[in-house]
Design a binder for these strands. Sequence first.
DNA 1: ATAATAAAAGACCTTTTTATCTTTTATTAT
DNA 2: ATAATAAAAGATAAAAAGGTCTTTTATTAT
Lengths: 143, 143
Amino acid sequence: MFSKSCEYGIRAVIFIVAKSQSGQRVGIKEICNDVGAPEHFTAKILQILSRLELIRSIKGPNGGFYVEEDAPPILLIDIVRAIDGNKLFTGCGLGLKECSEKKPCPIHYEFKEIRDALREMLANTSIQGLTNDLEKGLVFLKR
Amino acid sequence: MFSKSCEYGIRAVIFIVAKSQSGQRVGIKEICNDVGAPEHFTAKILQILSRLELIRSIKGPNGGFYVEEDAPPILLIDIVRAIDGNKLFTGCGLGLKECSEKKPCPIHYEFKEIRDALREMLANTSIQGLTNDLEKGLVFLKR
DNA sequence: ATAATAAAAGACCTTTTTATCTTTTATTAT
DNA sequence: ATAATAAAAGATAAAAAGGTCTTTTATTAT
């Protein structure tokens, strides 16, 4: 469904947000250890998110990744869009270049429903909301 | 969402079923022309479906691909399973190896809903049902 | 039997994705 | 200023997905 990049990205951001809520910055090493992701690969993904200012980073000692206290919630869809683009939400289910209400592919309407439900879900789910369960140990990020 | 293989496979089978309904067999060339798919690549996909007996093929002059009149409906999920496997229906949204009700990832439940809806849709949609709209020109397979 | 046709199979190539290793840049503490 | 730290950036490599080309096998019509 999502690319590896996106999976790592989401997992990393969940971890970063969780740590930020207790006021800590986290280094890429710790992130990748705790989230089970390849370090340099994930670093690049976080760079993208950092450039888009979805997350923040600071270099040097005591540096690391974090999100600001008063930052608006990060939505899953923000991360997916940033990393995988929005072909997932707009592309044809059968891979046709031209596929629309006017010239639909055979599964256009069936597929649209699923896609819309997915987009809705991603647009309504904030990372901040997910970290609660994580801290309660109800939910896991590794393995 | 689906792999290219799967997209080509579905498109090809829709075309084959449509032709079969008017009693014609179709060669791989005609299929790929009409469906806009790479020939040899698609041929291999159809071989897989043929081995699984989702579709039939006959070699030699007047040969080609077809489905039998009285064959049970081919469901989208049959094709997806045959080509992409069922990771789409069982895999974790965040790519965790271990992710279940007992040890859920942070988006386990949200993701499950979408995935189930997708599976349901694929399990309830038959190729035979899709070809009607195709013949009526309501729906398209190329471009 | 022979030639023609069409799928099956195999070898190979290209592109994209995923992953690693190295160097550079920015920041901090000493 | 210097050394240490940590992200950013760049180069390279491995793996997977996507795609092409050639040969083989089965079938049919002549």
